[in-house]
């Protein structure tokens, strides 16, 4: 029986310059170099990427959905942050 298993890594791929890296999945690798190589072989077989980030999964801190109320709901009534909050006559162009 193996003493230690390869840790899990999260893979982020930039599909082309100008776009952000997007999470596309995860995989196992012994170290960061191997994670990059594996990510290239697993997640960019069909020309999906021009750049890869790998992050060991344990280093990601995620918000807890139980706190979603306090974290995200307060933003819901701040309608003045959106352009449609402001009434302007139709004659005003380019604004």
């Amino acid at each position: 029986m193996s003493t230690k298993n390869w840790p899990l890594w999260e893979i982020f791929v930039r599909s082309k310059n100008g776009l952000e890296h997007r999470h596309c999945g995860s995989l196992h690798a012994a170290d960061s170099e191997m994670a990059l190589e594996n990510a290239r072989d697993v997640y960019t077989r069909r020309n999906e990427g021009v750049s890869i980030w790998v992050v060991e999964s344990k280093h990601i801190t995620a918000s807890n959905p139980e706190h979603n109320g306090e974290l995200f709901e307060p933003a819901q009534d701040k309608v003045y942050r959106h352009p449609t909050f402001y009434d302007l006559p139709d004659d005003v162009k380019h604004m």
């Binding site: 390869w6 995989l27 196992h28 690798a29 191997m34 190589e37 594996n38 072989d41 697993v42 077989r45």
Partner: peptide, 11 residues
């Protein structure tokens, strides 16, 4: 020896 290496060798 692992799925990941399998995919790499096939490439």
């Amino acid at each position: 020896p692992s799925l990941e290496t399998d995919i790499a060798c096939t490439n």
